[in-house]
Design a protein around this nucleic acid. Structure first.
Lengths: 144, 144
DNA sequence: TCATTTAGTTAGTCAAACTAACTTTCTGCT
DNA sequence: AGCAGAAAGTTAGTTTGACTAACTAAATGA
């Protein structure tokens, strides 16, 4: 593949990802939670209880930002925060059942949008996207 | 493809797109412009001069938000704004040479990141991503 | 023991998003 | 022609989410 083809693929991939996420974002309003909140809940739901700084790192924001956001989530009963028994400087943050339910609802709506669109494709096309998803995660340095 | 496979593909595609864009965002700081500004400049650079409301629609924000942002871009000499001769209620906004240069620089940096990652893949894998990009644009209802 | 580092919180600031209110211009109907 | 309603854009006010700076408490290692 020539250099210009690489650039073209990069450009279209970038553009495709942006548009796909914009489309999926339309479903977020239903949960009544912002994207940052949903995202943090998702990290907790899938990764289990975290320290505040761990959560901030996962979300690529500062501890100050995450401290505020977690405070809000706690006030809304979506996470529970308590002193870390192994290191009393820190806290452990866990998602509550309510928080998990809301997060799953939000995610379900988002994925339903994508899934409905996927259903309009052929099996071969879907297989392409399946492989591409794994490649994209690899490109970004994340585990699939 | 079964329903659960569809959901899994949707989940991984969603996740892959998020991570890919997060990775690409690392390059944005170099241009000294925010993502919203770069995005608006991009729309103007590729789509030609626009009305303010057209630009707001393309970026999926309100006219108020875009009015402020365009005001800033104009102050920075990156766009030129003038009354629309055909409808004096409105304005035409065009990217300046300076704005275009900055936008292209920013985009170049972003795509370079993706391209470098693409270079680590096999030809077959790249072909998969190329096809996937077109499919993603189709899924999102955008022209490739 | 103590200097340094780490974990988290709070205050202040800024950008970007929204809504509301407003002015100007356009459109279409009477 | 006149006018009501709609469209285009601007400004003010508010909220959220991001950052930095400053701080306290706890942990670490010399």
């Amino acid at each position: 593949m020539a250099r210009s083809d690489l650039s073209e693929t990069a450009r279209r991939l970038h553009s495709g990802a942006i548009r796909l996420l914009r489309m999926a974002r339309a479903a977020d309003d239903e949960s009544g939670l912002s994207a940052p909140k949903l995202s943090a809940l998702s990290v907790l739901a899938f990764g289990g209880p975290q320290s505040l700084s761990g959560l901030a790192r996962a979300e690529q924001v500062t501890a100050a930002t995450m401290s505020k956001l977690v405070g809000d989530l706690e006030a809304e009963g979506l996470v529970a925060k308590r002193t870390d028994r192994n290191d009393r400087r820190g806290v452990r943050i866990a998602v509550t059942a309510r928080g998990r339910a809301l997060m799953e609802k939000g995610q379900k709506a988002r994925l339903a949008l994508i899934r409905a669109r996927l259903a309009t494709l052929s099996d071969a096309e879907r297989a392409v996207l399946d492989q591409a998803a794994a490649l994209m995660l690899r490109l970004a340095g994340s585990p699939p």
